[in-house]
Design a protein around this nucleic acid. Structure first.
Lengths: 285, 285
DNA sequence: AATTTTAATGTAGTAAAACTTCATAACAAA
DNA sequence: TTTGTTATGAAGTTTTACTACATTAAAATT
């Protein structure tokens, strides 16, 4: 299996929906003629896509590239990737054959992991790991499907003797946020990044000087705007009907990355904790 | 390793011998630090490699690139050359590089999905889907990490107006199991298949004639033995230290399959429910 | 409906990057 | 020593990417 990390094309595909209209024009042109764009200057691209150069730069930034050159480099990298570029996410179909469903669901989940790797910024991940590693306490906020992600991370942290708490309702979130300090970290999970409760709680925590880490879909959203450290998951999910399936796997994948990062940084200490936890649990059988 | 088409690195390697001395200086620097060069302007590269900018351009031309930009694009493409990993799960290493961790974790999660597809029996999956579909009520039992899987399924079922409840502790599990009937289904999740609490509750449910579905690792275990329908996840997890990471993704993948199967069988009805649920949730923002 | 605010996009200017031209240095051959 | 050839850099030109500000369009507020 193949895992690449700098797939500019997929980054554009994923981010395009949150771009402004004229920015989308450029993005669409790039998606249609990626090879051409590689030999185009910003001015000729502005000509063919009928927007100003400034808009192109803004689009690059909106997609988390540092500029036009950086987008082109990333694009070039992705064009060299032999991965089945156009295998689309599969939707649920009526009365589908079970074997097909098994394959389609697994494929979607796999894709969401791969795509997430393209929108996750290594630097931001590193910052997040450091922040959590040095935090006095980590608060996790998530409601609905995201609550489960929060619970998962809470459990993981408990195993390695870190103070982390997951809150899934507005009241307890706020109650906890009120007491946070600048030494604390909030990891807020929301696929849309617009969940009212989360935004409210994060605001309170931010007011207390806590470090905010957001984990959202790869769009411009209010949660991500408030955050100090921004983590993204793929947002290409085929059908909203499928009910946040793939996105949740992608989020868990990010959680795994964070946890593994922390574990790696504190290898000796954490191996010890994990071994102890495992032994105790084993004896409970 | 796959053969790329625009491998700038190898182009340099091959052409370097026919370059002029000062041009070779540049080429050598690029071969040593290719990633760095990607974010370097021609002037900074001229500085670090101690040759003039003109020499760099001449070198690019000598290697059949149209210029410095074109060399960089080609370099970027070749650096992304996907690594096809051996099929082993990767373990956490000490003080690992973050980018590597991201890749390794994602790879493991991907593998666990793929492997699970190999140990899941289509017939059993079909039976499970039918059982759940026709059940009056579904009880889910899971403790620890598996509790999260249960919660996830519970949420999904709520969205489509099915009666499903997740229990994560012995007492409530037993309390619920006592009242189950032959029209009910128990979906019991345990990676080891030996969790005492789960076994106990399942026994009670079985006594009431309920259909038992087990979701365990691919081993012979007591839970699987008691079950009417047996679902498995891959059990190849590399290190127990990594803390039930990949296995949990695999379990969720199975949950997704079950849910999708039910959705597919009741397409119209469920699409309706999902649309309604989504709208309501949206308005809460 | 009028006014203010905010967001989206383009214009024009700037700094820096890539590339060219030409001068010079180093060396070899006559 | 002179002449020709090759390798390299300095300085200049053009092009590119990017910035700051202005304008327009759309929302929100009065």
């Amino acid at each position: 299996m193949i895992i690449g990390m700098t797939n500019g094309l997929s980054k554009i595909q994923q981010g395009i929906s949150s771009l402004k209209p004229s920015e989308q024009k450029v993005a669409n042109y790039i998606l249609k003629h990626p090879e051409k764009v590689l030999n185009m200057s910003i001015s000729s691209l502005s000509e063919v896509s009928k927007v100003s150069e400034a808009t192109i730069i803004r689009m690059c930034r909106a997609l988390n590239f540092t500029g036009y050159q950086s987008l082109k480099l990333s694009l070039s990298a992705s064009l060299n990737e032999p991965v089945i570029r156009d295998r689309k996410y599969q939707d649920i179909s009526e009365n589908g054959n079970i074997a097909d469903i098994m394959k389609a669901v697994s494929f979607n989940n796999f894709r969401s992991i791969e795509d997430t790797l393209n929108v996750l910024d290594v630097k931001e991940v590193e910052k997040a790991i450091n922040a959590i590693d040095h935090a006095r306490k980590v608060d996790m906020y998530g409601v609905g499907a995201s609550a489960i992600i929060a619970l998962d991370f809470e459990q993981k942290c408990k195993r390695i003797n870190r103070w982390c708490e997951a809150f899934s309702d507005n009241h307890t979130q706020l109650t906890s946020a009120v007491h946070l300090t600048s030494q604390d970290v909030v990891l807020a999970v929301s696929y849309s990044g617009e969940t009212k409760e989360i935004l409210e709680s994060v605001k309170v925590a931010k007011g207390n000087g806590s470090t905010i880490i957001s984990l959202t879909g790869f769009t411009k959203n209010r949660l991500q705007k408030m955050a100090d450290i921004r983590l993204y998951t793929s947002s290409q999910e085929k059908s909203i009907r499928s009910g946040a399936m793939a996105s949740r796997i992608a989020q868990l994948n990010v959680i795994d990355i964070l946890f593994t990062g922390i574990a790696s940084k504190n290898y000796e200490e954490i191996a010890h904790y994990l071994d102890r936890t495992r032994d105790i649990v084993k004896n409970r059988r």
